[in-house]
Design a protein around this nucleic acid. Structure first.
Length: 884
RNA sequence: GCCGCGGUGGCGAAACAGGUAUACGCGCAGGACUUAAAAUCCUGUAACCGUCAAUCCGGUUGUGUGGGUUCGAUUCCCACCCGCGGCACCA
């Protein structure tokens, strides 16, 4: 075997990519793997033609972990797919004026090409795409499971609507109240939507967080999003009416201060309160006005709070007072009960009461009599004051706000006014999207039977293909509503004519369970996968697109929107479940999940929720899908997030062409800590190419016949063991930048001591570098070593005399080799470094010896001569500090 | 407003347990090789001050600002300033 004298990635990178894939180097045996390690990276959603270096950064970092773990002896499974169904991909299709299904085909080809060219060790036989009917059949199946368990329901609720794009937007597409694409102000529209009852799981989602090995900031993010708030739910009667209101109070300490009640304008009971009274007209006009205002500027916090009296009162038993009920703009309808009792000890209530001249009654004061007088005179709002002293109720007179809470809660319960309870900030998950490019919600509305789920045997409900009008129009109905052949169907229960749901599922449902699917893909055929089958699987998009776009058949037009039965679809591993139970038991939960922190509260929460539902339905044996999650940083360009509109998108392709994927990968990882990301500048990349070229030359010099195979003891060997130790520790903690730095130091040591260099020095170097630069290390490894044993790489397939470097064991180090004969001791005088001395290892830990040695130093003498040494602080093997 | 993260040379960044601050790299400067260039290799590179000068030598300051604890602080504590990200009328 020969290699070029110069590092030329184009000569071998593609070659190895093909070779690895052909030999299944990264394809673990799913059934008999002994040490399964499911290394999962969040799959990309194609919202552009291809990947940018920011994406590549994330995938490379995840891949390095997989490659390292593989060398550590794990059966690493690292799958890849595309989250190509949904609004991001559809928006991109709209932007460039292509049909989403056509664009999906183009994006898929390009994304997969780039992911291959980046040198990632993916299990290419286990790919999935969320728009593949074989996949979304099961996304729809999940919906029906939710519905059957009462976890999917319909509710009329305001949704985000962009008047310019004429479309409904998801929450995450609304940035500061504006549409992320056109920047116009987003409106709120009342629409009936499908929801998943994620709030039923709020407490479990919160409680389990403690058990997860996740980045702390992500856990904190989820805790805040779930937003548990404990307090009391009180219940009181409306005077002269048969209406009772419950109201939540998270600060029950000052419950005796409550002097009025506010109700949300959207609250259903508002009308009942004023019906037939003189207040009906003005109040209902007010309600209409506020609703309009809220619709126009959904997220704008109305600084000016507004309200109107309803003419009704709450019989507030604790103080035996009547609290006037007001409709107030600031009350949130879907948090708590939408009715709140108000007091002087709340900032908003205080402002509202002042504005409308409502009564206020302080019951808590500071120690300072002057300040207390100000509170009595209602000069400012005294709230959330731990040191505040209560005056009411009398039994708690003199108690402090910070310690009285639990006793007050018990008191409220004892008197029967209310009960301890918790409220959550988390809302139910809105699934409906009035869009085209998504999995149709598999529900049928029958005039007689109501909402009926599509039977499992009829899934998937295929997305009709030849839809000319697939763009969102913002009429409140999705594009599918216009396709009569889609809409009109029969009720699965009674067989009479019925209509299909025409909304599609939120794309976050697609991605909430994909980790369940990967390991089971292609299971029945994996043992005798031939190359041709493999290629046809890699090309499966063609099949998917063809079902979405059947060729015009002679039998007539318009047939393509007819639903295709599941018989025509690729076989699945199991008819009852979208995964194989045994395989799932072996590989899940995911061993290591890696992704961006921007999904802290969306994808990562939904996936946990869906897993909990699976667990409750007895389908899986765990409820947390990702026990370990690592949040990688973001690559920015010129100080800003990469985006087309900014024009700062950096595509990896040209760099790969010029320097090779190895150089780009290593460079990206060297930029900074993987958790921090970094600013991409191309000035440094040539330096990384230079570094890898040095290794290239070094490895060739190692083939020189003069170079010994192994040297048992010399200084280089010690450096080598130290490097192995440091790099190993860095790899375990995703500290790739310092791992590379340590490899560089090692290379520097080798270059400076070439006469001592042995072949095993180079072999260890290549092994340490292999996760970062998989192609060139493979090329050099094959060049340097000739493994005589034919190795079984991919089950039964390997026939050649070849063992990949990526299947070599990770080098180990001998701790005994790290111990040096002499230790360096820093000598300080009054905390300032005055000299550095070297003593024998044994002497380095004996204070007297080091002290005597240090006193011999002129530099030290200069500072201690003629002075009294009061103390000498000694850190064995490290430091000696004279205090004079 | 609340929550989280960060602030170290010209730049990206190291310092894992309070103990030599600036590892590793980029950039820059100088040199070697060459007819020349590229490539490669070598040397230097926090600031300021001292000696005619100096690659050597000696000193002072220095990790956003001001305090504190300590023999010793980038690291721990308190207060503040600045930047980034998330949430935001949640009673």
């Amino acid at each position: 075997m020969k290699v070029s004298s110069k590092l030329k990635p184009s000569e071998f990178e593609e070659k190895w990519q093909q070779e690895w894939e052909k030999r299944g180097v990264y394809q673990p045996d799913m059934k008999s793997a002994k040490k399964p390690y499911y290394n999962l990276m969040m799959f990309p959603y194609p919202s552009a033609e291809g990947l940018h270096v920011g994406n590549m950064y994330a995938f490379t970092g995840a891949d390095i972990n997989g490659r390292y773990k593989r060398m550590k002896g794990f059966d690493v499974f690292e799958p890849i797919g595309l989250d190509g169904f949904g609004i991001h991909s559809e928006n991109y299709a709209i932007k460039i004026g292509k049909h989403p299904a056509q664009q999906a085909k183009i994006s898929q080809k390009n994304f997969y090409r780039q992911l291959r060219a980046s040198g990632n060790g993916f299990a290419w036989r286990n790919t999935l795409e969320t728009y593949d009917p074989a996949y979304y059949k099961w996304t729809q199946w999940i919906f029906t499971q939710m519905f059957k368990r009462g976890l999917a329901y319909r509710k009329k609720s305001p949704v985000n609507f962009c008047p310019s794009c004429k479309t409904v937007l998801s929450d995450e597409q609304v940035i500061d109240g504006s549409c992320e694409r056109c920047k116009s102000l987003v409106e709120k529209r009342e629409m009936e939507q499908w929801y998943f009852k994620i709030t039923n799981y709020a407490n479990r989602l919160l409680g389990n967080l403690d058990k997860l090995a996740w980045a702390n900031k992500v856990k904190i993010g989820q805790r805040n999003w779930i937003g548990k708030s404990e307090g009391a739910m009180l219940k009181f009667k409306v005077k002269d009416m048969d209406i009772y209101f419950e109201m939540f109070d998270s600060v029950p300490q000052t419950f005796m201060a409550q002097t009025f009640t506010v109700i949300a304008p959207e609250h259903q009971a508002v009308y009942d309160l004023v019906k037939g009274t003189e207040y009906e007209k003005p109040v209902m006009e007010f309600v209409g006005k506020i609703k309009k205002k809220k619709a126009a500027q959904k997220f704008d916090i109305e600084k000016e709070t507004e309200g109107i009296f309803t003419g009704r009162y709450i019989e507030y038993t604790p103080s035996k007072k009547l609290l006037p009920i007001w409709v107030a703009s600031f009350v949130i309808a879907d948090y708590g009960t939408g009715v709140v009792n108000c007091s002087v000890h709340d900032q908003r209530d205080f402002i509202f009461a002042k504005k409308y001249g409502l009564p206020l009654h302080p019951v808590m004061f500071p120690d300072d009599p002057k300040e207390a007088e100000k509170i009595r005179k209602l000069e400012y709002c005294y709230h959330h004051a731990p040191e505040g002293i209560l005056t009411e109720p009398v039994v708690f007179k003199g108690r402090r706000w910070e310690e009285v809470r639990e006793d007050i809660l018990s008191y409220i319960e004892k008197n029967g006014w209310g009960k301890r309870t918790a409220q959550y900030h988390l809302r139910d998950w809105c699934i409906s999207r009035q869009r085209y490019w998504g999995a149709p919600i598999p529900m049928i509305e029958c005039p007689d039977c109501g909402w009926v789920p599509v039977p499992e045997k009829d899934l998937p409900v295929l997305l009709p293909a030849d839809v000319a009008d697939w763009k969102p129009e913002g009429t409140g109905k999705g594009p599918l509503a216009k396709i009569e052949s889609f809409v009109n169907t029969k009720c699965p229960e009674c067989g009479r004519p019925a209509r299909r749901e025409t909304d599609v599922c939120d794309t976050f449902l697609d991605s909430s369970w994909y980790h369940m699917r990967y390991p089971s893909i292609g299971l029945s055929s994996i043992s005798n996968f031939s190359d041709t089958q493999h290629l046809s699987k890699a090309d499966s998009i063609r099949g998917a697109i063809n079902t979405a776009f059947p060729k015009q058949s002679s039998s007539g037009r318009g047939r393509s929107s007819k639903l295709i039965s599941s018989d025509n679809l690729p076989p699945t591993t199991n008819d009852q479940l979208p995964w194989d139970p045994e395989i799932t038991k072996k590989w899940l939960p995911v061993t290591q999940y890696i992704g961006g922190a921007e999904h802290t509260v969306l994808h990562l929460l939904y996936a946990r929720f869906v897993a909990m539902v699976f667990k409750d339905l007895g389908m899986i044996g765990f409820e947390e899908p990702y026990t370990r999650f690592y949040a990688h940083g973001l690559i920015i360009a010129e100080g800003a997030k990469m985006s087309k509109s900014r024009g700062n998108v950096i595509v990896p392709d040209e760099y790969i062409r010029k320097y090779g994927a190895d150089t780009l990968r290593t460079y990206l990882m060297f930029l900074g800590p993987f958790s921090h990301g970094g600013d991409f500048r191309d000035t440094g990349i040539a330096g990384m190419y230079r570094f890898l070229s040095r290794i290239w030359r070094l490895a060739q010099e190692a083939q020189n016949s003069n170079v010994k195979t192994q040297i048992l003891d010399n200084s280089l060997l010690r450096v080598m063991h130290k490097t192995v130790k440091e790099v190993t520790e860095d790899m375990e903690n995703f500290r790739y930048n310092t791992a590379i730095a340590h490899i560089m130091e090692y290379v520097n040591a080798l270059t400076e001591n070439k006469e001592q260099m042995a072949k095993n020095n180079i072999e260890v170097l290549l092994l340490l570098l292999a996760p970062f630069a998989p192609h060139m290390t493979e090329e050099l490894w094959q060049y340097l070593t000739h493994d005589p044993q034919p190795t079984c790489l991919a089950g039964r397939r390997a026939t050649h005399n070849y063992k990949s470097i990526h299947h070599q064991p990770w080098p180990s180090y001998d701790p005994a080799m790290l111990v040096e004969d002499a230790v360096t001791i820093v000598v300080q005088v009054n905390g300032k470094v005055r000299d550095i001395i070297s003593v024998k290892r044994e002497a380095g830990s004996v204070k007297e010896d080091v002290e005597a040695e240090a006193k011999k130093s002129d530099k030290v003498q200069k500072y201690i001569a003629g002075k009294i040494i009061r103390k000498a602080i000694f850190v064995p093997g490290k430091l000696l500090n004279f205090v004079v």
